[in-house]
Amino acid sequence: MKQSPYIKITPRGNSLQTAWRELLRSGHLLRVLVYRDLKVRYAQTYLGFLWSLFQPLTGLAVVFVLFYKLAGLQPEGVPYLPFALSGLILWNYFSYVLAQSAAVLINMQAMIKKIYFPKLSLPLSKVLVGSIDFGVGLALFVGLMLFYKLPLSGMWVLVPALLAMLAAAAGLGMLLSAISIRYRDVQQLIPFFTQMLFFLTPVAYATSLAGSVLPANGQWLYFLNPMAGILNLLRYALFDLPLSPYFSISLWVSFSLLALGIVSYIRAEKKMADLI
């Protein structure tokens, strides 16, 4: 016989363990949330799924013209297009997950006020939705690598790079989501902040370029931006570009952001229905 579930409600709210256990059991809910996002996204669009291809391609065209043709930022010994695309697809995924999970509590408030469900499933569903676009971008990237006859042996790096990137994006997103319950201003800041971060991150240029601007004893500061170290690692494995000794700072920052994000998100969840 199935053991009947037991819940104890106290003023303390959900513990981390409860939140985690419930997230593990929310497989079907996750699937449905992802399906809903995808379906709604392409509903009544003419190009439909092709938009997923359109975004990395236009992004690539823009950075190609701006950074390569106009600014002439050529990474040493690497063809520019696959170099830039590798950064772009990871960056796009990062900014999508960040923006979506930062807005998740406010966007879903109608549901949150009326029904109990494992709320960690909301940012997680955004991670899954974003993976579709990332997959399309990745296919494009592999195509480019083959076209330029570059080795694919460094692809293993995607596993740690993706994990760290998602930890940073979802972590920061959840943290901002929790703050924006009280201060909606945060929602106004996010697009602006993301845009600034794009220029500070070595997406369209090599990490060494940023390094050449900073003094020798301040190099590590640059890697407080989680995406800086992640992209540095990515390019090291894929194109054999130099790896900064400070890249691991970014990984530490990423996973600290995740921990901080989860804790503040679960705390916010408790007060949410009374505040929103």
Partner: peptide, 25 residues
Amino acid sequence: SRITYPSAGTVEISGRLASLLEVGT
């Protein structure tokens, strides 16, 4: 239904719970 938490006191629930505070959520 665990949408909000109490200020004091406890509730113990044994069994699977579903709540309908609004239809069509």
